[in-house]
Design a protein around this nucleic acid. Structure first.
Length: 417
RNA sequence: GUGAGCGUAGCUCAAUCGGAUAGAGCACCAGACUGUGGCUCUGGGGGUUGGGGGUUCAAUUCCCCUCGCUCACCCCA
């Protein structure tokens, strides 16, 4: 094999692409009903956008980015996520100047240099939303309800919503310090990674999966009990709205996200059927990021969903992609007549394929069978002379003649039946 | 970055203790069947056994290196 896909990347095509499109169309439809507008940002940005946006000390920035120099020596990075880009765009185009709440969504490929495994690729696709300009807890709840709605509409089950609060710039530093103090006390019981994290990112220790660490953390200070009054009230309202919206959730005090910009609400949706890469989507509130980018103080909320993982869950669903293509079969020297027929169908929005290479009627029908085709038009020499085609329904094993001028109307009726 | 398992035809898999021209099913092509499908029968094409090196009279089989895939750690969507 002389050339092949780069490690961690893959081609997505029929029939898998059908699930992909199904999800995308459904999601777009629903997003529209919540008044979200699409934004397409560049696949690559100056490295600084991600370094500042995601946080210099995160694993993503530290060791997972595709970074390279362009021909003028500028440092460029393939986007590892899209929130930083959208924030950059929000500021670059001064969207805040319009006032009100801005609701944006994006869909497209992201890139991270990681060892591939089930549900994890180096090029993967995300659908995400960002809401700018409101610190109202209703936004947290409604934006979570939006994605739960999407998941339900595409028929996913067996998912759970975990939620937590990371506090704000007032109460988080206090908690962080208390946690650090606690961690130093049990340092000897922690794994090597966690020992390092005590200084770099103590909250991440809470999320460690090493059993001995979990055990040692049993009596760790709980962030839920360290929240300030404002954060407590915010969270209580988020919970209240979620309940009135009918969204079920679990409070998970150890839920910490891997990106530095989150404040207050963080959440994720996990599946039991994805192996170890079980997070299908995650997100939360980031009230300080826009300001840190040098913009006006603008609260925001967002989430990102892994489409590759979602499609993996769609695998077992029974998709009924009926083949509605009309296969037009020549007989004798009648390819011109076939094309003439196809043209009429296509002008009327019907899909058709001229079986130009078939060497006999028998082979053509055989070939249609293999493609799971149902509708056939035989447009041979004798049909041309009579100005008709023979319509054949392979499933019902019936056939009849149709005048050429009536085919669009009659076939539409047949297909809609 | 770390660990484990696996790489044989387009796909799923065989090949005895290291032994002869690497097989089968499905798929594909052709014929039986020259304007009416799924079946059946007959025949056919298709392989650098992932790549490289080593041991051996002999390697798909054993050893080393390398590449790839898969899963897990890590991280995250």
């Amino acid at each position: 094999m002389p050339v092949k896909t780069v490690k961690g990347t893959r081609d997505i095509f029929y029939p898998d692409i059908e699930k992909w499109k199904f999800f995308e169309e459904k999601a777009r439809e629903i997003l529209k009903t919540y008044n979200f507008k699409e934004i397409i940002t560049p696949i690559f940005e100056y490295t600084e956008v991600f370094a500042r946006g995601i946080g210099e000390d995160t694993d993503i920035v530290h060791k997972e980015m595709y970074t390279f120099k362009d021909r003028k020596g500028r440092s460029i990075t393939l986007r590892p996520e899209n929130t930083a880009s959208v924030v950059r765009a929000y500021l670059e185009h001064k969207m805040y100047a319009e006032g009100g709440i801005k609701r944006l969504f994006y869909i497209g490929p992201m890139f991270r240099y990681e060892r591939p495994q089930k549900g994890r690729y180096r090029q993967f696709f995300q659908l995400g939303v960002e809401v700018f300009g409101s610190k109202n807890p209703f936004i947290d709840a409604e934006t979570i309800e939006l994605v739960i709605n999407i998941l339900e509409k595409v028929g996913l089950k067996g998912l759970s919503v975990n939620i937590n609060s990371l506090g704000c710039e007032k109460c988080r530093p206090v908690y962080r310090e208390n946690l650090q103090k606690f961690l130093k006390g049990i340092k000897e019981k922690l794994c090597e990674d966690c020992k390092r994290r005590i200084d770099t990112n103590p909250l991440r220790v809470l999320d460690c999966k090493v059993p001995s660490c979990k055990e040692a953390l049993k009596d760790a200070p709980n962030i839920q009990q360290s929240l300030c009054e404002d954060c407590k009230e915010h969270q209580a309202k988020v919970f209240h709205y979620l309940e009135t919206m009918g969204v079920k959730y679990e409070v998970e005090p150890n839920l910490v996200r891997g990106l530095d910009y989150y404040t207050r609400t963080v959440f994720e949706v996990v599946s039991d059927n994805l192996g170890s890469q079980n997070a299908i989507l995650g997100g939360g509130r980031y009230d300080n990021l826009v300001k840190e980018f040098g913009g006006p103080d603008t609260p925001a909320f967002g989430w990102a969903l892994g489409i590759d993982r979602l499609v993996l869950l769609l695998e077992d669903k029974n998709f009924d992609f009926a083949n509605k293509t009309i296969y037009i079969v020549p007989a004798g020297n009648s390819i011109d007549y076939c094309f003439q027929t196809a043209k009429i169908l296509r002008e009327n929005g019907l899909a058709s394929e001229v079986m130009a290479d078939s060497k006999s009627l028998k082979k053509a029908l055989n070939s249609v069978n293999k493609q799971r085709g149902r509708f056939v038009l035989i447009a041979g020499e004798s049909e041309r002379e009579k100005g008709i085609v023979i319509f054949k329904d392979m499933e019902n094993k019936t056939q009849r003649e149709i005048k050429l001028e009536n085919i669009a109307k009659e076939l539409k009726d047949e297909i809609d039946k």
